Amino acid sequence: MPVFTVKSTAALERAIRLKRQLMAFYSYCLLWAGTFIGVELAAFEPNTPTLALLALIVIINVFFYLLIRTGISEQFRDPSLTIVQMAAGILLTTAILHYSRELRGAMLSIYFMVMTFGVLALDRRRMLLIAAFTQLCFTSLLIYEWFEAPQQAIFSYLVGHWLILALGLGWFIYMGGYIHNLQSRVREQRRRLHEAHNRLSAIAVRDDLTGLYNRRHFLERLEEEMSRANRENNPLHLAIIDLDHFKQVNDTYGHHAGDDVLHRFAQLAAMGLRKSDLLARYGGEEFVVLFPHTSTQACQAAMERLRNRFAQQHYSFSGDLRSKFSAGLTPYQPGESAEEFIKRADRALYQAKDLGRNRIQLAN
């Protein structure tokens, strides 16, 4: 995968996490605004530290924002820091509940708002851990208030609130796990569809046996390279290669042996040529190579190296077989068509065969 694609994907994912963090900050602000209004309406304890809560909200969100913005959070398994952020929200909610009065039953819904942030990101086991942490925080608050002011505590209310929270968290665990599993299946289906798309794309441009580009893709790229050569006035060369006496290999040793020879040539050519050279299987035992931005002498030298390496190959099905090929090489003439370009290379190939095969023939 290209480096710029990896970087752009990482930047996009970071931008999404930053947007989620801003949404979390917005939710915190709504919570604080509700608390502030509740204090003004005497629905909360008059000593509720609204300014301290606001400062704490800003500090928490700035801290997480900087971790995500600088990329430090990407060193962790979950770059969004979902569990840590949920734990911070649960602790802050518990602190606010301490100052609530008869609104406590309604304020319990804030716990469930925090839980929604983990529905898509956490599996059932981690949702269970967060739910247990939430229930523990609320239980600790009830115990603390019981010992701090037992005369104000109403046992039935405490038990009722505790059970409501427990039942609500149980529902979140069940539904969160179901949604997470559903999302995982959707992701798996998308991954399989992406892999299938990649395989189909490869089949459309690749030859099954050799793994090289096929004829259709080569002809498309040929037009592009010719246009570029005309536009930039750069040299362009085409070589057509035909494996010598390939039919005899199939007739003598079988088609599996012929496939082995074709595959061996494809491997040698792919390793021996430049990455900028376009190598393709043209059909049967014919191959084509397009050489952009290079001289005729360099093309001839590359083809000779490939011819010599191919002739040195040994095969398991025959110790006597020495594979060879003939090739026609031609430079591109500005303004000519692809058909004319290919025909000149093809004529040079037949000249190489007429002159005894196993040679590179430059077009006249």
Rank of each mutant, 00 (worst) to 15 (best):
residue 46 P to F: 06
residue 47 N to P: 00
residue 47 N to Y: 03
residue 47 N to H: 11
residue 47 N to G: 06
residue 48 T to W: 01
residue 48 T to E: 02
residue 49 P to N: 09
residue 50 T to L: 08
residue 50 T to C: 13
residue 50 T to Y: 08
residue 50 T to H: 07
residue 51 L to D: 09
residue 51 L to R: 04
residue 51 L to W: 08
residue 51 L to S: 09
residue 51 L to K: 05
residue 52 A to H: 02
residue 52 A to F: 03
residue 53 L to W: 10
residue 54 L to W: 04
residue 54 L to S: 07
residue 55 A to D: 02
residue 55 A to R: 09
residue 55 A to M: 08
residue 55 A to G: 14
residue 56 L to M: 07
residue 56 L to I: 02
residue 57 I to Q: 01
residue 58 V to Q: 09
residue 58 V to P: 00
residue 58 V to L: 15
residue 58 V to C: 13
residue 60 I to R: 02
residue 61 N to E: 15
residue 61 N to F: 05
residue 62 V to A: 15
residue 62 V to M: 14
residue 63 F to N: 10
residue 64 F to C: 14
residue 64 F to I: 00
residue 65 Y to H: 05
residue 65 Y to V: 00
residue 65 Y to A: 03
residue 66 L to C: 06
residue 66 L to R: 02
residue 67 L to W: 03
residue 68 I to H: 06
residue 68 I to K: 07
residue 69 R to E: 10
residue 69 R to A: 14
residue 71 G to P: 01
residue 71 G to H: 07
residue 71 G to M: 11
residue 72 I to W: 08
residue 72 I to V: 13
residue 73 S to P: 11
residue 75 Q to L: 12
residue 75 Q to M: 11
residue 75 Q to P: 00
residue 75 Q to C: 10
residue 76 F to E: 06
residue 76 F to S: 10
residue 76 F to D: 04
residue 76 F to I: 05
residue 77 R to H: 08
residue 77 R to A: 14
residue 78 D to M: 12
residue 78 D to H: 13
residue 78 D to V: 12
residue 79 P to W: 12
residue 80 S to L: 06
residue 80 S to E: 12
residue 81 L to D: 04
residue 82 T to D: 11
residue 83 I to Q: 12
residue 84 V to N: 15
residue 84 V to T: 13
residue 84 V to S: 15
residue 85 Q to H: 03
residue 85 Q to D: 04
residue 85 Q to K: 13
residue 86 M to H: 08
residue 88 A to L: 09
residue 88 A to F: 07
residue 88 A to E: 05
residue 88 A to R: 05
residue 88 A to P: 04
residue 89 G to Y: 07
residue 89 G to T: 10
residue 89 G to Q: 12
residue 90 I to Q: 03
residue 90 I to T: 12
residue 91 L to S: 13
residue 91 L to E: 11
residue 91 L to H: 06
residue 91 L to D: 08
residue 91 L to Y: 06
residue 92 L to Y: 08
residue 92 L to W: 13
residue 93 T to I: 14
residue 93 T to R: 03
residue 93 T to P: 02
residue 94 T to D: 05
residue 94 T to F: 01
residue 95 A to S: 14
residue 95 A to P: 03
residue 95 A to D: 11
residue 97 L to D: 04
residue 98 H to L: 13
residue 98 H to S: 07
residue 98 H to C: 08
residue 99 Y to V: 14
residue 99 Y to L: 08
residue 99 Y to D: 07
residue 100 S to W: 15
residue 100 S to K: 15
residue 100 S to P: 11
residue 101 R to H: 14
residue 101 R to D: 13
residue 102 E to T: 15
residue 105 G to D: 10
residue 106 A to Q: 08
residue 106 A to V: 12
residue 107 M to E: 09
residue 108 L to H: 14
residue 108 L to S: 11
residue 109 S to E: 05
residue 109 S to L: 15
residue 109 S to Q: 11
residue 109 S to H: 11
residue 109 S to G: 14
residue 109 S to V: 09
residue 110 I to F: 05
residue 111 Y to R: 04
residue 111 Y to N: 06
residue 112 F to Y: 07
residue 112 F to S: 05
residue 113 M to F: 09
residue 113 M to V: 13
residue 113 M to K: 02
residue 114 V to R: 01
residue 114 V to C: 05
residue 115 M to S: 05
residue 115 M to W: 00
residue 115 M to N: 00
residue 116 T to D: 02
residue 117 F to Y: 10
residue 117 F to C: 01
residue 117 F to T: 06
residue 117 F to K: 00
residue 117 F to I: 01
residue 118 G to T: 03
residue 118 G to V: 00
residue 118 G to P: 01
residue 118 G to Q: 01
